[in-house]
């Protein structure tokens, strides 16, 4: 699994110098139990299962602030996406079930939001 995450993310976690800039920039900070720099560190140390069970994989906004500000070009958002992808590609791994969606919609919600959520939450 660790190789899968490294391969599909293209991220080399060893480049990280643990400066924490990614986490300091992250708007999802309060919504994640593991913060972006911890994601990188835990992938480096093979702690993928814990990450796969963490809610941070669904609360990352893909805002790319961490990518922009990382001085070592580690691209933490890609690691988070890779772990989330590993989860939703598993059988029954979908985070959002189709019959749960109608209740979440309202009149003005743009297609873009629904399509994004589908792409982010299920395969």
């Amino acid at each position: 699994m660790i190789d899968f995450v490294k391969r599909i993310s293209g991220v080399n976690p060893r480049k990280c110098m643990k400066c924490g800039k990614c986490t300091a920039s992250c708007p999802a900070f309060d919504e994640m139990e593991y913060h972006p720099h911890q994601f990188v560190d835990m992938v480096e140390n093979g702690r993928i299962d814990e990450l796969m069970n963490s809610k941070g994989i669904y609360t990352c906004l893909s805002c790319f602030a961490c990518v922009e500000r990382c001085p070592r070009n580690v691209e933490p958002a890609k690691v988070i996406e890779a772990v989330r992808t590993a989860v939703i590609r598993k059988q029954d791994g979908n985070h959002l079930k189709p019959d749960a969606i109608p209740a979440l919609l309202d009149e003005e919600l743009p297609q873009q939001a629904i399509t994004s959520a589908f792409r982010k939450y299920r395969k």
Binding site: P27, E31, Y58, T59, L61, S62, C63, A65, L96, L104, L109, A113, I114, S116, A117, K120
Partner: peptide, 19 residues
């Protein structure tokens, strides 16, 4: 240039509201 909450509004309104 801060995030508006994006698609997370679908699951977690409070989070998008805070943003």
């Amino acid at each position: 240039n801060e995030c508006c909450g994006g698609y997370c509004t679908l699951e977690n309104k409070a989070y998008a509201q805070k943003q």
